[in-house]
Design a protein around this nucleic acid. Sequence first.
RNA 1: CGGAGUGUAGCGCAGCCCGGUAGCGUACUUGCAUGGGGUGCAAGUGGUCGCUGGUUCAAAUCCAGUCACUCCGACCA
Length: 491
Amino acid sequence: MSKDFPTREENYSEWYNHIARKADLAENSAVRGCMVIKPYGFAIWEKMQATLDKMFKDTGHSNAYFPLFIPKSFFSREANHVEGFAKECAVVTHYRLKNDEEGKGIVVDESAKLEEELIVRPTSETIIWDTYRNWIQSYRDLPILVNQWANVVRWEMRTRLFLRTAEFLWQEGHTAHATQEEAEQEARTMLDVYAQFAEEWMAVPVLKGVKTANERFAGAVDTYCIEALMQDGKALQAGTSHFLGQNFAKAFDVKFTTKEGKQEHVWATSWGVSTRLMGALIMAHSDDDGLVLPPKLAPIQVVIVPIYKNEEQLNNISEVAIQIKADLEKEGIRVKYDDRDTHKPGWKFSEYEFKGVPVRIAIGPRDLENGTVEVARRDTKEKQTYQQTDIVHKVEHLLENIQKNLYDRAVSYREENTRQVDSWEEFKDVIENKGGFVLAHWDGTSETENKIKAETKATIRLIPLNNKQEGGKCVYTGNPSTQRVIFAKSY
RNA sequence: CGGAGUGUAGCGCAGCCCGGUAGCGUACUUGCAUGGGGUGCAAGUGGUCGCUGGUUCAAAUCCAGUCACUCCGACCA
């Protein structure tokens, strides 16, 4: 099983790309910076979507849909917001093409210039708040708890499958509230939803916290986030939830009448996770043999591979395999029986390993004689032989066990790579040579944060929620500090 | 937008310096054998060498321009 592609150790980036391609998740498209999500990759995303969607509904939210195009004037209403996104916007300027008179093919018809340019949404706060103005008159209209599943476009300079593409899929929640407390609570609640999803479904442990001013969303008062540690020691922001204060309500003049008859601006939140979660999933668990999927999100949880020499053997094996498949499916397990005769067993073993299928069952002539099957688990690569009569119970147990093992493994990795650091020399050394999360004192100024970033490329990933307060000295300036914050290099 | 590099078969590459019949690996198709960890042998299909122009009897190769992509920075979910 020799692999002629880089291992995780040799070249993490190339390894990552290779996994994404070999697992049949996605590929670069002919369009600059854009990605094609292939059916297998999309099946995982759909599973994520369905799970998150249910969690949103369970917390009182409904889905809606807003336009792809945003008039430039809307977009520029909120000063910080437009400044934050201006450098990465795709802009529609014309609405018609024509045949070139000099025969150079199809060209833009200059006479069809839009009076006002349209921005392809990089995020939808502006168009949504412009809409909410009409929806909200009274405190009786609040809260509005809406989510949309959509694509957005951010014209990034450099792109990478799932982690940063020019167009990506996501969900964005946009809520409107009568009070500050309620909006802040909403932002925290959704952060908890994201953390729960990451840990329980993706088996990716995350830290919850709040961003510093430097890293805050453009237009937010507070940005909460979950951060996960990847296998190369870099942090990945896996989800964000923003308390927007009254910034957008003021920019779009969204007011409501209180019980007392007073006019007040509405309080807002927005929150989102994207197909970047797919990147997190790949990087958190995969190994040199391919993707490793947590059973809860795996489109195929169990694959059955027959091993046979002739058609008669295949028929006999199929009988057993189809029965096992039915028995497993009765328990809600997603099973594929791969009886293709176009590929050999060894090929299939490798293929499903690349695709991260958690459990593989192989059945051959030997098993037919003994009434057994061979069961292999993807996470540890261990193989065991079980009696056919026992199989449903064993597989159920195994799937739970794999889910838990992936999470535990990721937690241990994070613990091993989280270090408390008190001197600047040590800080530089750890960031440069070891990576991971670094807990260090910081004097609370953007200036210091920027200097640390310039010297080490590390940024403050978050200030943990309910952070322990302790006196100390800033690792960079030596100025007094009241708490440690989390530094890391990030994606 | 700054620095470096690459465009030759679906994919990965050689050939270019020193111009002269378009190559290799893999994939694909067919046949036979094989089948408990990416199978072996044989035959076969597939390319206006990124694009435009120039030099030349002759250009993948030399020259000029242009487009695209990759990597490293800046930016970012």
